[in-house]
Amino acid sequence: MHFTINGQRYEADVDIRTSLLDLAREHLGLTGSKKGCDHGQCGACTMLVNGRRINACLTLAVMHQDDEIVTIEGLGSVENLHPMQDAFVRHDGYQCGYCTPGQICSAVGMLDEVAKGWPSHVTGDLTDVSLDDAEISERMSGNICRCAAYPNIVDAIREVAAKEEVSA
């Protein structure tokens, strides 16, 4: 099988049952994405596939051979943090850090969804989308943080959204 992850081409000979998450972690050495529940309930495995955030634990690697995949390793590096990574650090948007790669990938994908004008469950008028704290919480509900760093996660995302002037 062949894959494009973080702009790099990979070849891998893996069992057909391998999830996209296990491919990255166990076969390609990309261990930034985390396995929390392995059932799509916690969001720790969130990756961006063709720009959209998905649960990498709930999809087969074999189905993504023609896709552009981005993991936390592809968003930024220690020397050159992605703005969302930088905001999470400054706002203390984590404690143990296990959910953080998924939170950050999810937040990046989420802001793209807002920019496209996608409404959420808490949007009043579905044609008039803007981002407040209630919107951020609702849109990030697929990412669980057992340390409950939620207030600081919301702070970090709000700051990046404001800097990038994200609104529909």
Binding site: G40, I54, G109, H121, T123, G142, N143
Partner: peptide, 16 residues
């Protein structure tokens, strides 16, 4: 229909 879809699952799951 939009409201029902938005009330279901998470952003990641709805994308898939």
């Amino acid at each position: 229909l939009s409201r029902a879809l938005l009330a279901g699952a998470s952003g990641q799951l709805r994308n898939k």
